[in-house]
Write a protein that binds this DNA or RNA. Structure first.
Lengths: 297, 297
DNA sequence: GACGGTTACGCTGACCGTAACAATC
DNA sequence: GATTGTTACGGTCAGCGTAACCGTC
């Protein structure tokens, strides 16, 4: 019993004749006749009474017609769902991100993307790089955005955004009005730092070490928001990613200062499993992320 | 997209591998691989991620799996319904009958048949022969049982029961205790008759005319029950079909008397459209009717 | 004769098997 | 080397078309 046979049967019922069904389906009439006879033979039941060359559904035929319609409808529904997925009208992309990106960069982008593609599900999880890496390998998420270093033969890494970190102080701090500060001076300031293992801290330490600058850590806070509040309260200075402080700079709550020619730079990366199927939604989202972050100041 | 492909897809999902599915379905593994690839190609969607030769359903695959299961279930349901019909576990037979048969013969038989075949529908209609004939021709009923004459090139007529009509009188009537009555004597009795056009009346008139017997009609009642009540009240005598008076004879409410050697006989007939499909239920019911009436006294 | 359904027969392509290859464990 | 999935190729059969036949209007 093929789906085609069901469609033909339904058409015969609706048109009331095999000839009419043949015309409607662009087939020859004997082909219709044969599939109907084949159905009857296969089902061991007469579907039509042929009374004076006119077709009249038997009781069995009526029951089978109802089933046939339900089946064909369901198949169409399934096919539509699949084309919707192919056309990004439907789908799911499970997104992961590490702290900073997940907090300051992705929320706006995801929500904007979701407005463009209403019926797409975009479950989103923020965790540290190690966990995110494991989730990629276990196929628990489809794609992730991280700042820290990562390595695995099964993971493809693709940079997508040049991050820079800025020295930040309270607007009440004496540096607040200066354009630039001599890098030597920071050894006299109280530094507020992220905890060990933080990608942000790693960049800062590496860069300062590279320039042989000494500094003193006064407070250690495990999230950027806490650090920002502490700086606002003039408890010290810190070096923070630009995406995390954009808003506060604009609002005049924090001041960013150049430190000679020293730049704190790193790359944000897109990662995904090397065997991952690049669904249309997958590709679209990567494109969207890239174009959204391209002109980020 | 074939049903077979859906079954294969479901099996692959359930077993988690194409090889296992191949073993389960007694097919080769490449055949499985091809149908899955074919499905993906046709649907324009990846159903599985192949991560290290292991199959993991994509989001699209999960959605399609749910649809596939529903579709396959529905198809099985439809096929089961059809085999049930073929096996008389399900079905419908629309039965018609003319007055006498429908009132006195069929009800018990239909209800007994329905006890043997619980889930079968047996809609039943009683009307005069002319209407019943029309319903057969219009495919409004599948089979009918009639006593009167009928003719149509499209209707098959098959006798199934030899009916006999008996002279009946009240037990208070002077004939009640006699075994036999000379046929000449009925001209002095008040006759109770069915209306003109009744099949029963026709038999009586034809037979009496054949024997050149005269009689006088006193009352004309259009149904047998009314005639029986009238006879019980000793308003007259009548000649009634044996199936209609069996109960009253046994209960001693009416007396039946032989009239010399005159016998009022006729045949009950099964009729159906000549192009009617003889469903298993159709045949079974005819067999049942014949065997039930074979030993009717 | 026009129309509708069935039967007979031939072709084509989809489906499945065999064989060979690739990749993972 | 054993297992699993993909690719290539060939055979078979179901499904459709053509032609011819039959019954109804």
């Amino acid at each position: 019993m093929t789906l085609r046979a069901l469609e033909i049967f339904i058409t015969v019922c609706e048109t009331g004749s095999m000839s009419a069904a043949a015309r409607k389906l662009y087939m020859t009439q004997p082909a219709i006749s044969q599939t109907i006879l084949g159905l009857e033979d296969k089902l061991n039941v007469r579907l039509f009474d042929r009374i004076k060359k006119r077709l009249i559904l038997t009781h069995a035929g009526e029951i089978f017609l109802r089933y046939s319609k339900r089946i064909v409808n369901l198949i169409n529904e399934a096919e539509n769902a699949m084309t919707d997925i192919a056309n990004l009208k439907l789908g799911q992309l499970r997104i992961g991100a590490s702290m900073t990106i997940g907090t300051y960069l992705l929320p706006d982008i995801i929500s904007a993307f979701n407005k463009k593609h209403q019926d797409v599900e975009l479950p989103f999880i923020i965790d540290n790089t190690k966990i995110i890496r494991k989730m990629i390998l276990n196929n628990e998420i489809d794609i992730a955005f991280i700042e820290g270093p990562i390595n695995s033969n099964d993971i493809i890494i693709e940079p997508f955004f040049d991050d820079e970190l800025y020295l930040v102080c309270s607007i009440r701090h004496e540096w607040a009005n200066k354009d630039s500060i001599s890098s030597e001076k920071i050894r006299n300031e109280s530094f507020i730092m992220r905890e060990k293992g933080s990608g942000t801290r790693e960049v800062i330490e590496n860069t300062l070490k590279q320039f042989n600058l000494s500094y003193e850590i006064k407070h250690v806070l495990n999230n950027i928001d806490a650090i920002k509040k502490a700086i606002e309260a003039n408890m010290g200075i810190s070096i923070l990613p630009k995406i995390a402080i954009k808003k506060e700079i604009v609002e005049g709550k924090l001041a960013k200062i150049k430190l000679d020619n020293i730049k704190f730079k790193r790359k944000f990366k897109i990662i995904y499993h090397k065997d991952k199927y690049h669904s249309p939604l997958f590709n679209k989202f990567i494109d969207y992320i890239k174009s959204s972050t391209q002109n980020f100041k």
